[in-house]
Design a protein around this nucleic acid. Structure first.
Lengths: 155, 155
DNA sequence: ACCATTATGACAATATGTTGTCAAATAGGA
DNA sequence: TCCTATTTGACAACATATTGTCATAATGGT
C-alpha cells in the first residue's frame, strides 16, 4: 500500500491505525468468548471490572469518564447489570440524583470467576510477545489517546 | 492497580489491553470529527477506503474479510454508500450473487478529499511520537490480532 | 452428473455506543 | 441569597456491529 504525502512517521502512524482495527475486532471477539463462559458480555465485563477495581463506589458518570465512554452508554449497561443482580445502586450522600454503583455478592463472585480465566489467558498470550514492545505499545496508545483528545492536527 | 496472578509479561499485556479501550474510543471520536467535514462517518470512510485502495473491485464478503468485520456489517454500510451515490454495484462475471463494489466518480472525489485531510492530520500527530515505538506498537497489535484469532490461551 | 458442503446476500433480532433533549440537582460567582 | 452554568440520570432516535436464519449460487469429491 502507498501512503502518498505521508511523512515517514506519518506513514508509520497510519499503519498503526490500520492495524488497530483488526486488533480491536479480534480483541472484542476474544473478550466475548472469555466472558460467554460466565454468562456475561464483553461490555458488561468491562463495566463490572471498573466497578470492581475502584477503591470506593462511583457514580455512573464517573465510571464513564474512567472508561472513555459516554454517560448514557455506561448507564444502560449498568442498568442491565442491575437487572441481572450483579450490581446495586446505593444513595449518594453528596448528590441526590447521582447514586453510587456497587457490586452485589453475586457480582463479586462473577468478577472473581472472570479474573480466574482472564489472568492465565493474558499470561499465555504474553508469552508469545516481547515485553519491551508491549510496554512501548501501551505507551504509544496512551499518548495517542491524549493527542486525539487534544485535537492535535485537526483543522 | 494490582494485577494479581499475572506474570510480568501478562501484566504488561493487560495494561496494553486496558490502554486500548480509551485509545479506540478517542480514535473513533477523532475519525468522526475528520469525516464529518465530508458528510461521511467513520465507518463509511473505512469501508470507502478499503474499496478505494483495492487494486480491483471486490465483493462485499471480501471487503469484510479484509477489514476483520462480518459480511453483514459491511453489507449494510455498502448499501448506505450506494444509497448516497458514493459506490455502485457491478455484475461479477465469476459469481451471479456476489456483485462487485466500485467507487463512483463522486466516491472517488470524496475519498480524495478525505485523504487530503487525513494525511496532514497523521503527519502532525506522528510528529509527537517516536517512530520506533509506533512501529513496535503496530507490530504488537498485528501479532496480538493473530494470537486472538488462534484462540491462544483460551480454555 | 450428482450431491453435500460452502459462500453469498437478504432479512430480522439484539447488543453496544452515539447524539440530542429534558428536568432535577449541584456548584460557583455576583 | 440569587442567578447562571454545569452535572446528572432518563428517554428517544439513530449508527454500528453481532448472531441467526433463509434461499440461492458456486465448489468439490464421488
Amino acid at each position: 500500500m502507498v501512503y502518498t504525502g505521508h511523512s515517514s512517521k506519518g506513514a508509520a502512524l497510519t499503519k498503526l491505525i490500520l492495524a488497530s482495527f483488526p486488533f480491536h475486532g479480534a480483541l472484542m471477539a476474544a473478550g466475548e468468548r472469555l466472558t460467554a463462559l460466565s454468562g456475561l458480555t464483553s461490555a458488561r465485563w468491562q463495566v463490572l471490572s471498573v466497578i470492581a477495581r475502584a477503591e470506593r463506589p462511583e457514580t455512573v458518570a464517573n465510571i464513564a469518564r474512567n472508561m472513555g465512554l459516554t454517560r448514557q452508554a455506561v448507564q444502560r449497561v449498568a442498568n442491565d447489570l442491575a437487572a441481572t443482580g450483579l450490581v446495586a445502586f446505593a444513595p449518594n450522600p453528596h448528590h441526590k440524583r447521582a447514586v453510587l454503583v456497587m457490586l452485589t455478592a453475586t457480582g463479586q463472585a462473577r468478577f472473581q470467576e472472570m479474573s480466574e480465566r482472564q489472568v492465565p489467558w493474558a499470561n499465555a498470550l504474553a508469552d508469545h510477545l516481547n515485553k519491551t514492545h508491549v510496554d512501548a505499545a501501551a505507551c504509544v496508545l496512551g499518548e495517542l489517546a491524549k493527542l486525539f483528545e487534544h485535537r492535535v492536527g485537526e483543522p
